[in-house]
């Protein structure tokens, strides 16, 4: 049960950027500014929640921050057709130094900020469910939002015209343009949807279970989401499977920690899992091509 619950907590942090990233990948853009957007969102969630003592404002600030980062990314990658790695890395590094700078200038602290005035995102208590308590009860609101969004996106992905346009923009944008639908617009839309999702996950990072912002607190989670997106290659089911596996390995690591294994070693597990998954995928697809 412990592993189950901590899997869910980890998943809630990376599932949304994975969903958003898959969305933009389908539209033909690998979004690698996730880490930076997430970090900015985490900071602004703390700021919004601190200023207004309301987690809603925290969420709003987070989403706006993520929107700004993603809009810059979209402008460079879609409109200017710049190299995604250059601009993505620049934004990630910018987010890291900008949040430290803001931390110093707004709160006057180095490295970490917490306050009683910050309101946390509430935990949903569903009343007494008896044996199902451990499975459904007392998760953060974000967990439920995530579940709802997964279902919504599954529907969008396979049943709507927008889902089709998205794939067309990724696979063959010229055809889409010829059909009178602007592929750039579709790409922008996908990146903006991604921005909202990443914003929510950033808020969850800083005001979900905690009430603090730490410098570089996204700690590679955005990258893990990117890895899952690359692994899934636009396929909904595969992307979800690899993400869930990752969450499970992470939780497993944390629980092994309590049985005495060094925490720095168990922290390596999820990264090793991704490495193995990527190698497996690479070897498999290469041998398939050779047949």
């Amino acid at each position: 049960m412990y592993i189950y619950r901590s899997t869910i907590v980890t998943l809630a942090m990376i599932m949304l950027p994975v969903l958003g990233g898959m969305w933009t990948l389908q539209a033909g853009i690998l979004n690698i500014s996730q880490e930076g957007a997430m970090l900015m969102a985490a900071f602004f969630a703390v700021l919004g929640s601190y200023l207004f003592s309301s987690f809603w404002m925290g969420l709003l600030f987070a989403i706006l921050a993520s929107l700004v980062v993603n809009l810059i990314y979209a402008f460079f990658c879609v409109t200017l057709r710049a190299n995604i790695w250059v601009i993505g890395m620049a934004l990630n590094i910018l987010a890291s130094s900008l949040t430290i700078l803001l931390l110093k200038s707004i709160f006057g602290v180095k490295g970490s900020f917490t306050s009683e005035k910050i309101q946390q995102i509430p935990i949903v208590h569903l009343g007494n469910l008896g044996p199902l308590n451990g499975i459904f009860n007392d998760f953060s609101l974000i967990v439920w939002i995530t579940v709802a969004l997964i279902l919504f996106f599954k529907y969008m992905d396979s049943r709507t015209v927008f889902g089709l346009h998205l794939k067309a923009a990724g696979k063959n944008w010229k055809t889409l343009d010829t059909a009178g639908i602007s592929s750039s617009k579709i790409k922008y839309e996908s990146i903006l949807i991604n921005a909202v999702l990443v914003g929510i996950s950033g808020a969850y990072l800083s005001i979900g279970y905690l009430k603090l912002f730490n410098k570089d607190m996204s700690a590679g989670r955005g990258w893990i989401a990117v890895a899952a997106v690359i692994f899934g290659n636009g396929n909904f089911a595969w992307t979800l499977i690899v993400t869930i596996t990752f969450g499970f390995v992470d939780a497993l690591g944390i629980s092994l920690q309590s049985s005495g294994l060094n925490s720095n070693l168990t922290l390596m597990f999820p990264y090793l899992a991704i490495i193995i998954a990527l190698i497996y995928q690479g070897v498999k697809s290469t041998s398939k091509n050779e047949d």
Binding site: W85, I230, I275, L278, I279, G282, V283, T286
Partner: peptide
């Protein structure tokens, strides 16, 4: 194996 080197 064409494994994405950035993520790796």
């Amino acid at each position: 194996y064409n494994v994405n080197e950035v993520v790796m």
